[in-house]
Amino acid sequence: MKLVQTIILKKQPRIIGSYTIVGPKEGNGNFGPYFDYVMKDDCFGEETYEKAERKMLESAVTGVIEKAKLSVKDIDIMIAGDLLNQIVSSSYAARAFQFPFLGVYGACSTMAESVAVGSVLIDGGYFDNVVCCTGSHFSTAERQYRFPLELGNQRPPTSQWTVTGAGSCILSLKGEGPRVTMVTFGKVIDWGINDVNNMGAAMAPAVRDTMLRHFKNTKTSPNDYDLIVTGDLGKLGSEILIDLMEDEGITLGVNYCDCGQMYFKRDQKTLCGASGAGCCATVFNSYLMAKMREGQYKKILFLPTGALLSATSTQQGDTIPSVCHAIVIEM
């Protein structure tokens, strides 16, 4: 059924397997024990960080196919994205495989975007097994958006730490696993924030918009979900979101959390928390999937957000537009 922005899936594709690979710092974070593979160093045996990011995405795809007990031949299409210019990491990772590739970009919301697109493709009856993959790398993102790693500058208190990690999952109608039941595609929202070191504040209005639309369309409220998880608003951004939703008469209570805020331990000095496409991708495909399979959570609303800026747009003084896509996962 199609409502404005929202699709209620009839066939409800299942997430039959998920896989995560992260860097050492992430492995020491709060979700450490849930990741499938923790790299020994950020280079992953490659010469450059860009090559390492590629290899991460590639390994995530190979890993998830293996984990779902499928073979490469069973995959119909791969939907992937990352943060680098021209989403090179995903395209180069897809080069290693013999299935079609759809590149998607939604900055840090890419995981939800790929799962949403994949579920709709399966629901339409066109594909059987879709692999969705998203990742980011701290060192490649820093170099593209900010400063060289060895530069001795200080990070402002609102800044967040890009996660080195990739997460992947396989959507299918056959097999066991949590179901994707609803999808709400978000609009691009810009409330005039132009501080690149304050992504949380730039992205919170996008979550507000998608969340309001989703609740309205599906006639649900926060209490209908065991968990409402936003992507990487971070400490400040999630506080802002709670305020924004309160203004709309919706209270986000104990069942609300944010991947970015929870990701790292306090002594890991990441200021406002984690960010990056790999942030919610690795939490979603490790911790959240594990807890759903265990039965701890039955119904999750997952809303990753992406700040759709580039280094050039920032330098030209533009404000930061953001997008947020919502997916509902039920066990």
Binding site: L149, E150, L151, G152, N153, R155
Partner: peptide, 26 residues
């Protein structure tokens, strides 16, 4: 040097050592 910079901020950016760091790091 980036560790010193994280701790000291302007203290290690302003002297000529900071200039050296800003050329070496890129």
């Amino acid at each position: 040097y980036d560790q010193i910079g994280k701790f000291a901020g302007g203290g290690s950016i302003v002297p000529i050592t900071g200039f050296s760091n800003s050329i070496t790091s890129p």
